[in-house]
């Protein structure tokens, strides 16, 4: 079937089998491999992208469910010369070690900032319920997000 969607501002019409997951369309068809697959069971959040501005787990959606939608992946928010403030904050606060969870953490963190007024560390911790990091112990991730929340 044909799925038409806008990813990082560019419209794509992609021919995929109906059982294709959104994360596979992103990684395999569009070769945007910044979005990761950790668990494939809606637990870890490594596959988090924005669908019409809200964080969703791309491993748990069909590509067909994104028909007509605007999708933003980690590649769409900044680049090495021009980091998004959240990416810069993660670097500044040493909020990553292996980096596997980082794209999903950053996409979820941006959703948190966009949809909450006055984030405190408790709200940030609860907001990361759906994202698992096996390296950092979370403290520096929370600090990075707090620094962006306080700056905005």
């Amino acid at each position: 079937m044909k799925v038409t969607l806008t990813v990082n501002g560019t419209e794509h019409a992609v021919e995929v089998p109906a059982n294709t997951l959104l994360v596979d369309l992103i990684r395999v068809n569009l070769q945007l491999t910044g979005t990761h697959v950790g668990c494939d069971t809606t637990q870890c959040g490594a596959c988090t992208v924005h669908l019409d501005g809200r964080a969703v787990k791309a491993c748990s959606m069909l590509a067909a469910q994104a028909e007509g939608a605007h999708v933003t992946t980690i590649e769409g928010i900044g680049d090495p010369e021009n980091l998004h403030p959240m990416q810069a904050a993660f670097r500044e606060h040493h909020a990553l070690q292996c980096g596997f969870c980082t794209p999903g953490m950053i996409m979820q963190a941006i959703d948190l900032i966009d949809n909450n007024d006055g984030l405190d560390s408790q709200t940030i911790r609860e907001g990361l319920e759906g994202n698992i990091c096996r390296c950092t112990g979370y403290h520096n991730i929370v600090r990075a997000i707090e620094s962006v929340a306080n700056a905005s």
């Binding site: 809606t42 964080a55 907001g127 319920e129 759906g130």
Partner: peptide, 9 residues
């Protein structure tokens, strides 16, 4: 319910 991403879907 669940987490933010689950609540969005």
């Amino acid at each position: 319910i669940g987490d933010n991403q689950v609540r969005n879907r």
